[in-house]
Design a protein around this nucleic acid. Structure first.
Lengths: 165, 165
DNA sequence: CTATTTGCAAATAATTTGCAGTGCG
DNA sequence: CGCACTGCAAATTATTTGCAAATAG
């Protein structure tokens, strides 16, 4: 919660602009849902946004929150973190390594780099807590998906495909 | 799937050793479940491990796979990736930044670093795919949790606590 | 006015748990 | 041979969807 009022206003303006460009309706709930995410630095999940928006719009429903969050992320106004519709995966590679994750199919490949193993973190991190492990996550399109040609990075819908093996 | 037989054997030995030290029973299903993860580089999820183990032990149940995977991760033999029992979070910070994630409470804080914004990736990454974004993920214990004193990093159990705000 | 969007309730999907029988050490 | 471990089925939790009513432009 360290966002200045100006910063929030700027984000709100960008949001309204983006909705108009996309010819998407500026509803009360969309405005408040976006404001709730734009307001904080704490990366709330859908349930948390729901609880907070509810204080101002007691009738919002959780599914509207979900729909709106994914819409906002399609518009490029917010970024989903973590469980990108993925299940937990398990890694038996105990050696120090980093990951390349395909944003389209979920393929997660290890790669190694002495350089990246030994990064210097800014002092700001010290203030946050005691760092234990540092890993570089590279997101992109894997070879196989690139060959399959351009495809929409569809979100919701059905089960996440498993492009491993 | 580029693990040498030797490498797998070594992992299996380490696994058996760890189970004995922890005085945990070396059951048929545990052995095969661990082997399945140790065998590949593709970071399978629980369902995938289940399907593969099933071919050799047709009676294993999915819940045993889940239980075993978390057990193995408690023993430090495998590492869970991605959705660490977390829900998807949303981030309205469109500026380039990195994350500090508390492994205990899930707090996810942004931090900035020009140095980290401009990392040089090894050539190996080129072979994997087209990199789009690169982010550094620092995992550790946040200030608040550190003050709360040492606590077991319990996994299963109840709902993930939300140490944000 | 009219196509979008919402809220509701019910459907899916992923994961966890209680319990009685089974097998490792 | 006893207690840890398993399989089953049922419970939970997170998220998505179909549909009729509400509403922004």
């Amino acid at each position: 919660m360290t966002i200045s009022a100006n910063q929030i206003d700027e984000r709100m303006r960008r949001f309204e602009q983006a909705c108009r460009s996309a010819r998407i309706k500026l509803t009360h709930q969309r405005i408040e849902i976006f404001r709730e995410v734009a307001k904080t630095t704490d990366h709330p999940d859908a349930e948390t946004v729901f609880q907070r928006v509810r204080e101002r719009i007691p009738t919002v429903s959780l599914d509207t929150v979900y729909r709106t969050l994914w819409l906002l992320s399609d518009l490029g106004l917010i970024t989903p973190l973590g469980p990108l519709r993925e299940r937990t995966r398990f890694d038996a590679n105990l050696a120090r390594h980093h990951h390349f994750v395909c944003v389209r199919c979920g393929l997660t490949a290890d790669f190694y780099s002495d350089l990246l193993d030994d990064l210097t973190l800014p002092e700001a991190v010290q203030a946050l807590g005691q760092a234990e492990t540092t890993r570089v996550e590279v997101h992109g399109i894997c070879r196989a998906c690139a060959e399959r040609g351009p495809q929409p990075t569809h979100h919701p819908k059905t089960k996440q495909s498993q492009r491993n093996s």
